[in-house]
C-alpha cells in the first residue's frame, strides 16, 4: 500500500536538505565536496543521537536519498554491530548498511567508464 503523504514529506524534507546545501554553497566559498562531507558528518551525528531514524520514518526517501543518510547508515551499522559484538563490532559493522551504495557506485562507475567516453 502506498501512502501518498509520504511523497509530500519526502519532497519537502529532501528538498529542504538540498536547499540548505545550496545556500551553503552560494553564501560561502565552500565547495560541493565540503558540503557533501559536512552533510555526511552531520547525518552521522544525528544518527548517533537517534534523530535521523525518526526523520526517515517521517519523510521516507526524503531522508534516505540525501548523502546525510550515508553518515547515518554508517553509524547505525557500527552501533548495532557493537551491540552484538562489543567494540570489535564498530569495525565489522561499519559498512553493514552502506555496502549497497558503495558497491553500486563502484560497479556502475566502472561499467560506465568502460562503456562511455567523457563528452567534454
Amino acid at each position: 500500500m502506498i501512502e501518498f503523504q509520504t511523497y509530500l514529506y519526502a519532497f519537502l524534507v529532501g528538498g529542504a536538505i538540498c536547499a540548505l546545501g545550496q545556500l551553503i554553497l552560494d553564501f560561502t566559498t565552500l565547495t560541493t565536496g565540503h558540503v557533501l562531507s559536512g552533510f555526511t558528518v552531520a547525518g552521522g551525528i544525528l544518527g548517533g543521537l537517534g534523530v535521523y531514524d525518526k526523520l526517515i520514518k517521517f519523510a521516507g526517501a526524503g531522508a534516505t536519498m540525501p548523502i546525510s543518510s550515508f553518515g547515518n547508515a554508517l553509524v547505525q551499522g557500527a552501533i548495532s554491530e557493537a551491540q552484538r559484538n562489543g567494540i570489535i563490532g564498530v569495525l565489522t559493522g561499519m559498512f553493514e548498511l552502506t555496502s549497497t551504495g558503495i558497491t553500486a557506485a563502484i560497479i556502475f562507475g566502472f561499467l560506465t567508464a568502460v562503456v562511455f567516453d567523457p563528452k567534454g
Partner: peptide
C-alpha cells in the same frame, strides 16, 4: 573537476 562532474 572532471568534465562530467555536475557542479554549478
Amino acid at each position: 573537476y572532471p568534465t562530467e562532474y555536475g557542479v554549478q
